[in-house]
Structures are given as structure tokens and as C-alpha cells.
Design a protein around this nucleic acid. Structure first.
Length: 571
RNA sequence: CGGGGCGUAGCUCAGCCUGGUAGAGCGCACGGUUCGGGACCGUGAGGCCGGAGGUUCAAAUCCUCUCGCCCCGACCA
């Protein structure tokens, strides 16, 4: 491709609305253009990168036995009514009407459609298992799209759906997809982590997320260097916390703690460690108020709480509710003397504590010397702890590290969640009709590209991992006025093309500085620079975008050297 | 949905408080000088000041309403 006739326009100015580096660089490098909030055009240069990733995804999924198809963007509402999600999905589902006033929606995911397809075609266990996938546009009317391709409303996703006769089959399909995902992200040369994920409302027995590690990631994960355990913090567990030494029960006393609404303030005023203070947090749920106890130095994991209560979500109670339930201002609630209507749940971290400090349900007062059993009956203990860096690995006890990640893939075991209500059944060997066991497997194509840039850039621009680079090599003649330079550049360009290399020739009539800066910005991995000076010695300059030194090679050997540099290791 | 901010040239922004001739830099076009890390000089094109209503002799500027966009919290690939 010749840059002078290609559609690639870089900008020096940083777009005002781009916050994160991948977004800024993608806009500056002419990869994407925003059309509306969370909706982008993929410009030719960016589209090439998505195509490179799509090809890798197809290769690995095909190898894993999945079969590509393509489903519609617009879905008949009746299908969604069948699964129950027409009501349940909420505002994220963009609903539209056609000219006959018939309801449709833009597909945010395709369980309904794929289940409808499969239930019509597959009747017998002999036709199973199967695994269908597509790479396609999704639409989710996100509350807050942001960060360019990282969280769009319209985005490109690979989604796969497996259908099996039983749990064992599902397990096998799941493991295969798991492996395929690991191969995909490895092939992309991304630093990723596979972690246990919360299954939440979807339920099911297992779920894993694939995280590209980056500081700008919106998800937090903990991982263990020793044994390889990794989990989204929503899901993460740890070993029981070391409890402070038990003491003989002391007398319960109410003490004055004016304006001390935080654990730190109370602990300091009373001269005790925060692990001897117990926080009481009040939540407002559709089933009424819930009080949750947790050790003062730790935080509650709201996802675990919601799962425990079997609710889609929970929210901290507002000030008014806190006052009416506890009888005190926010900051002084405690378990002693709460109304019976409040469900009291304790995190495991408070189980062995003695002589604790907690709110007195009186403004500006706390209780000391509180003991379970004598002062309060705690019947409901469960794990609600938000795990953090430094906690002990639940498997091996080593220290966990906390890091941020971008969720680029998520795999689920769905079981019969969709097959049952939608009647996606098959006949087994005994002639019995049974629901198929399903799994679903998502991979964000655009988001993975954004994540790759988050992980691979410097102050000057993108540093593409070779497999995702829009072009593999860039040939840059430094001037168009020296015939020898132009001829040499054309020669290298054609050599590389004839070897099937994706090569871009910067034949624009620009000054060298402009070409160098653009080259850094667009980040093509291998660069061949041809200038009058080195060419006088019959040499051209080859360098890698990723920090490599320049090397001078004879013009004739330039293409060969480039081929060496891009050859995958071991090939 | 709550909280904060912004809509002026293709892009990044000034002007608005205190109403009176539409501005800069970059980019673009033309001419000249330059040519190994975003050159310089000159000339020029380019605007319904997001939209609607109002106040006023006069509105980018003041008021009301709207639409869009961005950032911070609950969702997800």
C-alpha cells in the first residue's frame, strides 16, 4: 500500500474528549472516528488491525471445532419475551418498532437467536455437541460509554455458543474454549491473566474472565504468583483472617465518640486497633433493610452480598433510612439493639472477635466490650470480604497481588438457562427429551485492540505487537527528489510485497521529520528508512519500533532482513 | 439516573463576567525559500458562535427552554 493514496490521516492535536491513551492514539493515528457517544467508525487503518485479530480468533476457534455463522443485529422481541429478558434486560436493550408497530431490539448478545436456530435444527443427541460463533456488531445502550473502544455502545464482539447433551459435555466444551482463548491472547502477544469471575445473575457453575493487565483497566483482579490463582475481586476469596488474640469478656460500656464517624477516628480516639472495631453497614434492598458487620479494617464486597441475598444488586442505605433504622446519624450504627425487622449478616472476619468496638445506635457514641452471644446473637455468617493485595491466596497461602485489568474475554457455563424456557431440547438414547446444556463465550474485538494499545505504547505513539499491527513493515524514503532513493524504496517495497508482507510505503511528499513522527505514532513494527547519505554507501536503515537499534544493511539484502525480523520465533 | 463541566473555523482553543466590526495556533490552498525528527516567509479560503424562544436600538455575550458531548459513581466484551 502506498501511503500517498491510502486513507490514513494522522493528527497532531489530541482530541478534547479522549481521556485514555488508547483512545487518544487511535484517534490520532486515524484508526477510529466517533459518530456519537460510544459509537465509532472504524477507519481503514484501524479496521486492518481488527481484521488481524479477527483472523487469529477465527483460526483458533476453528481449530477448537467451533463453526462460524452470522446472526442478525435486529431481533424479534418475541424471542426475548420467550427467554424472559424482554422485561429483565432493562434499558440497556435498545428497542425499536417497525412500520407495523412490531417490537424489535438491537442485539446486545445472541443467546436467544442462536437458541432459536439450534432448537429448529437439532433433534437428536447424535447431532450434538455443536459450537457456533460469529464476529459481529453488538449494541448495548450503556449508561456511560467511555474510553473510546474500551466501552462503547456499538461494539464488535466474537460470541460463541456451545450446545451439549450433559454437564460433562459442557465441561469439555468450556475447557476447549478456555484453551482457545489462552491461545488467542498468547498469539496476540498480550500480557493477560485468566481469572475466576463472578457468575452473578447468570448463574451457572463456572465462569472465567480474560484480563489484559493495564493500569487503565476498569476491573480489579488479584493473583497469586506462586500457584497461579487469579480472580476478579468481585469473586476473590482469601484464607480466614488472623483474628486478634481472644480476651476474657469485658464489661460492655457506652463511650462518647463525638463526630467520630469513621473506623480510623474511633480506633484512634479509643486507642484500639481498627481490627477490633466492627463496622455496621446498612443496605437498602427490595427485601427490606439489611445490616452487614465486617471488621473495621476491611471492606465489603457488594457482589458477594448481592449473591448471598440472591438479589441482582444492593445499594447502601440513604441517610434517612439509616436514621430511621439505627436511630442515629450515619456513622454510629451497631448490631446491639437494632430492630428485629433488620436482617443481620456478619462477615466471617468478625466471627472470632472479642471485646469489639461498634456503633451504639446513638449519635456520637460507640460501645466497647461487645461480645457475640452475650450482647448480640449473630446467626448468619458468610464470606462478604473484599479481598485486596497482601491477603493470603485461598489455595496456597502466598501473598496475593492486586492489579487492574481490561476484561477482554468472558466465558460462562449457562447450563439450561436458555434451553429450558425456550424449549431447545434433544432426544437422548433412551428416547427421552432433554434440554441442551449451553455455554457462552464472549471476546471483545475492539476492546482487545484498545487493550493492546494500552499495553504497548510510548510517548510517541503505538508500538504494535506484530500479530495485531495493521501493517507489518513501513518503507520510508526520506525524500522524493532523489531518484536513487525513490528507486531503492520502490525496490524494497516490491520485494516485501512479493513475499506477502503487509507493507506500507510512505511515498508522501513530506519532510523527514513529519514521516518519522507519523511512523512513531502509527507504530508499524519494522521500519526501513532510505536516505541519500546511507544509500550513497549502498545501505538502508532497518529498525524496530519497539526500542531496537538501527542497523545498516545493503539495499539488496533489506527485504531478506525484514523477513528475518518478522519470522515468528521457532518458525 | 444523580453530581460536575463543555458546545465559537476541519482540529485545539480565546472572546462571554462588563452586549456594539468574528479571533489565534494548527491544518487546508497558492507562491517562494527549505529538506535525516512535526521548517520558514508571504497571500488566501474557511463561521447560522449547537438549536428554539425571549430581553434590547443592538446578543457569541444576558434570560428561558431544548439537543448534543465529556468527566465522577451503580453495568459489561
Amino acid at each position: 500500500m502506498r501511503w500517498s493514496s491510502y486513507y490514513l490521516f494522522t493528527t497532531r492535536e489530541v482530541p478534547a474528549d479522549a481521556e485514555v491513551v488508547s483512545h487518544r492514539l487511535m484517534v490520532r493515528a486515524g484508526m477510529i472516528r466517533k459518530e456519537a457517544a460510544g459509537i465509532y467508525s472504524y477507519l481503514p487503518f484501524g479496521w486492518r488491525s481488527l481484521q488481524k485479530l479477527s483472523a487469529i480468533v477465527r483460526r483458533e476457534l476453528d481449530a477448537a471445532g467451533a463453526i462460524e455463522l452470522h446472526m442478525p443485529v435486529v431481533h424479534d422481541a418475541d424471542l426475548w419475551r420467550e427467554s424472559g429478558r424482554w422485561r429483565a434486560y432493562g434499558k440497556e436493550l435498545l428497542r425499536v418498532r417497525d412500520r407495523h408497530e412490531r417490537d424489535f431490539c438491537l442485539g446486545p448478545t445472541h443467546e436467544e437467536v442462536v437458541t432459536d436456530i439450534v432448537r429448529r435444527d437439532i433433534r437428536s443427541y447424535r447431532q450434538l455437541p455443536t459450537n457456533l460463533y460469529q464476529i459481529q456488531v453488538k449494541f448495548r445502550d450503556e449508561i456511560r460509554p467511555r474510553f473510546g473502544l474500551m466501552r462503547g455502545r456499538e461494539f464488535i464482539m466474537k460470541d460463541a455458543y456451545s450446545f451439549d447433551v450433559d454437564e460433562a459435555g459442557l465441561d469439555a466444551a468450556y475447557d476447549q474454549m478456555d484453551l482457545a482463548y489462552q491461545r488467542i491472547f498468547t498469539a496476540c502477544q498480550l500480557d493477560f491473566s485468566r481469572v475466576e469471575a463472578d457468575t452473578g445473575a447468570i448463574g451457572g457453575s463456572s465462569s472465567h474472565e480474560f484480563m489484559v493487565l493495564a493500569d487503565t483497566g476498569e476491573s480489579q483482579v488479584v493473583s497469586c504468583r506462586e500457584c497461579g490463582y487469579g480472580a476478579n475481586v468481585e469473586r476473590a476469596e482469601t484464607q480466614p483472617l488472623a483474628a486478634p488474640a481472644a480476651e476474657p469478656p469485658a464489661e460492655r460500656q457506652q463511650v462518647s465518640t463525638p463526630s467520630c464517624t469513621s473506623v480510623a477516628e474511633v480506633a484512634e480516639l479509643l486507642g484500639v486497633g481498627p481490627e477490633r472495631v466492627v463496622k455496621t453497614l446498612l443496605y437498602e434492598t427490595s427485601d427490606g433493610p439489611v445490616a452487614v458487620l465486617i471488621r473495621g479494617d476491611r471492606e465489603i464486597n457488594q457482589t458477594k452480598l448481592a449473591n448471598h441475598l440472591d438479589l441482582p444488586e444492593v445499594a447502601l442505605a440513604g441517610e434517612a433510612l439509616v436514621r430511621s433504622v439505627s436511630g442515629a446519624e450515619v456513622g454510629f450504627a451497631g448490631p446491639v439493639g437494632l430492630p428485629d425487622t433488620v436482617r443481620l449478616i456478619a462477615d466471617e472476619s468478625v466471627r472470632g472477635l472479642t471485646n469489639v468496638v461498634c456503633g451504639a445506635n446513638v449519635t456520637d457514641a460507640h460501645l466497647t466490650g461487645v461480645n457475640w452471644g452475650r450482647d448480640v446473637d449473630l446467626a448468619e455468617f458468610t464470606d462478604l470480604l473484599l479481598v485486596t493485595g497482601g491477603d493470603a491466596c485461598p489455595r496456597c497461602g502466598s501473598e496475593l497481588t492486586l492489579s487492574r485489568g481490561i476484561e477482554v474475554g468472558h466465558i460462562f457455563k449457562l447450563g439450561s438457562k436458555y434451553s429450558e424456557p425456550m424449549g431447545c431440547n434433544y432426544t437422548d438414547e433412551q428416547g427421552q427429551e432433554r434440554p441442551m446444556m449451553m455455554g457462552c463465550y464472549g471476546l471483545g474485538i475492539g476492546r482487545t485492540i484498545a487493550a493492546a494499545i494500552e499495553q504497548n505504547h510510548d510517548d510517541s505513539g503505538i508500538i504494535w505487537p506484530l500479530p495485531l499491527a495493521p501493517f507489518t513493515a513501513l518503507v520510508t524514503p526520506l525524500t522524493n527528489r532523489d531518484d536513487a532513493v525513490v528507486a531503492a524504496a520502490e525496490g524494497v517495497y516490491h520485494d516485501l510485497q512479493s513475499h506477502g508482507v503487509d507493507v506500507l510505503l510512505d511515498d508522501r511528499d513530506e519532510r523527514p521529520g513529519v514521516k518519522f513522527n507519523d511512523a512513531d505514532l502509527v507504530g508499524i513494527p519494522v521500519r526501513v528508512v532510505i536516505g541519500s547519505k546511507s544509500l550513497a554507501d549502498g545501505k538502508v536503515e532497518i529498525s524496530l519500533r519497539r526500542g531496537g537499534d538501527k542497523e545498516l544493511v545493503p539495499v539488496d539484502g533489506a527485504a531478506e532482513r525484514v523477513l528475518e525480523l518478522i519470522r515468528p520465533p521457532g518458525a
